[in-house]
Design a protein around this nucleic acid. Structure first.
Lengths: 348, 348
DNA sequence: TAATATTACGTAATCGATTACGTAACCGAT
DNA sequence: ATCGGTTACGTAATCGATTACGTAATATTA
């Protein structure tokens, strides 16, 4: 036999007063007598009254919920982002309704609609690889529900977004490899479309250009699924075919780790013969032997900054303010470890 | 200038009919004329009417939201669980409100209350390490809101829970090490209280007993924070102090990986001199050299099964059925790789 | 003493949707 | 011509909380 939920009505009828009086007593309105207030507070405490958020949200047209659409949860980078989002949201009194697009536009659309109907106060989205337009987010704009994109975005100057400087990060990584004496650098890229893949490639090109190293298109290799075995087999094939290279830059740690394995299993010493660097600086980088150099991608910070921006926009709108889109670019930075460090003499 | 949300009222007044008529037209009630229905449907389509879930939830006293409290998001195992939860919830028309306890009882309590006031239809919880009682979940029981625990639970036969057979898994791992000829097995344990840590230790003991190997308490080492450096330094210290051992079983992959590093950096060959096995079978196991053997912990499946159980209980309650607690035990299994495999001759 | 001010509430509307119930208009049948 | 039945709606209540407004009862002042 489940208990019936305690509402203001419960308390009102127990005290023989009206519901609004109870409400006002709880909110300490000046026109409620002290006796009534203490009586209400006492009952509230005894009966463990907990306000019904659904009713509050309906009334106030505000849910204190932030909707999040992310492509994939099981991923070091994204889980860091989620943590950043949740921590920041919680600190500001917001809850997080989390959904997963699984890199599918169809699901992204579905979740956008669901989150809209759930009256989220704002939306944080990392676009799926399939997404090519913002059409399905138009309703949020129309109804003045703030939307902030992060990490994977499309070109826009009307929607705020938080990204990291992929181009700069990739540039630094490539330059670092060049400083190690490498000039024949394999570039392992991911799916072709996302802006950050493209930017990383641009950074790679920038560095080659700066040092007058011609771009060799046979050095550009594609791993569209971004899996370790994919990179492993690809690099192994390159080795077996006798293609020469002295460094590998993968757009994702997992690719570089696959590449590292292929080198090791084929007798190529890292970093002596080949320097390797990854992207993201995930946990795994410290686990490989040699440890993997990588471009640090501040996942937690992206989550944090996007959420802060979103909350700021929410509050701005509540105060009827006009809002202009802002682009926030976070810095990536190099984490140099053994896999690309020839100066720090290593082991094995 | 934000648009005003389209509600049933908008449509009703545009057509000069009443709100309930619009509602019934949309739900295809038989006592609404075809003309009215088509007119309503046409407007609904034109104005992009989207129902207000808040209002629906309030009316139906059902939110279609599942609350989740998890200790930590950035963790291979937990992110797999979350994925299992989200996928299953979505398939059954539920959304997921995710919160993080950060292993703090205080936050767990806070989130429980918040989720209750948000009228979640059910609650999935992985208890924090600090949690010693279910007191803060009593309200859910009282109001007949289903609660399902997973992974880290306390002893209970009134609350359904989904766990893996830690004892069996640890037994198999230890037995496997013994089969490799090891008899002096370091056991790296985590925080002392959680049931699964205890169970893993029991599995370890069971195996030793079966093979008549005396339990040497100096082989039991504690890594309460479960970090890689912790395990690294601990094992390094053991080596430097000259304590002998021929295998290491860590209750978490990250501990075993730390241990592996310590062995390698101190000239101890794995698996020739020391066999190592971990627990969870996270991504990282395939990345180390030698690759790390581990006890596979079905994260996705735990999420999936807990959610299914929860939804089943929710639906059961909606049909006024009585519900009895169920314990679901998932099987863990051995993933044997190079770090504990002396038969499959490895490298370097 | 009568007019006014203050105190401490209650009434009614509201948020958006649903649903039990009531009813006007029209039908055919007696 | 009146009755009963059907059709196609509208009215009112409801979910739980908030808030503008109204109003008795008492207190204060002219």
């Amino acid at each position: 036999m489940p208990k019936i939920r305690v509402t203001l009505k419960t308390i009102a009828s127990k005290l023989g007063i009206s519901v609004p009086t109870v409400s006002r007593a709880l909110k300490d309105y000046p026109d409620i007598s002290k006796e009534t207030k203490t009586a209400v507070l006492k009952l509230v405490d005894e009966l463990h009254y907990i306000p019904n958020n659904l009713a509050l949200n309906l009334r106030k047209n505000k849910s204190n919920i932030i909707g999040v659409i992310i492509p994939e949860v099981v991923h070091f980078f994204f889980s860091s982002v989620i943590k950043g989002i949740m921590q920041t949201a919680e600190n500001h009194g917001y809850s997080v309704l989390l959904t997963q697009s699984q890199e599918q536009l169809k699901l992204e659309k579905k979740h956008a609609k669901l989150l809209f109907s759930s009256h989220v106060d704002g939306l944080l989205v990392c676009l799926s690889d399939e997404t090519k337009s913002f059409d399905h987010f138009k309703i949020f704009e129309e109804f003045n529900i703030p939307l902030v994109l992060f990490d994977k975005v499309l070109d826009t100057d009307t929607i705020s977004h938080v990204i990291i400087n992929d181009r700069e990060g990739a540039f630094q990584a490539t330059e670092h490899l060049i400083h190690q004496g490498c000039s024949n650098i394999l570039f392992l890229k991911g799916p072709k479309d996302p802006l950050n893949t493209i930017e990383r490639f641009n950074g790679y090109k920038d560095a080659l250009e700066k040092y007058n190293i011609p771009l060799d298109s046979s050095n550009i290799k594609s791993c569209p699924h971004i899996t370790r075995p994919e990179a492993y087999h690809l690099v192994e094939k390159v080795i077996k075919e006798g293609q020469l290279f002295d460094a590998i830059f993968g757009v994702s740690d997992i690719l570089s780790i696959g590449a590292l394995g292929a080198c090791q299993d084929n007798g190529i010493k890292v970093p002596e013969k080949v320097c390797i660097i990854g992207f993201s600086d995930s946990e795994m980088c410290e686990i490989t032997r040699p440890q993997l150099s990588s471009v640090y991608q501040p996942g937690f910070e992206i989550g944090e900054k996007s959420t802060l921006k979103l909350i700021q926009e929410i509050q701005h709108i509540e105060n009827d303010g006009e809002q202009k889109a802002e682009q926030i670019i976070l810095k990536s930075s190099l984490k140099i470890r053994e896999s690309s460090n020839r100066i720090l003499k290593t082991f094995c």
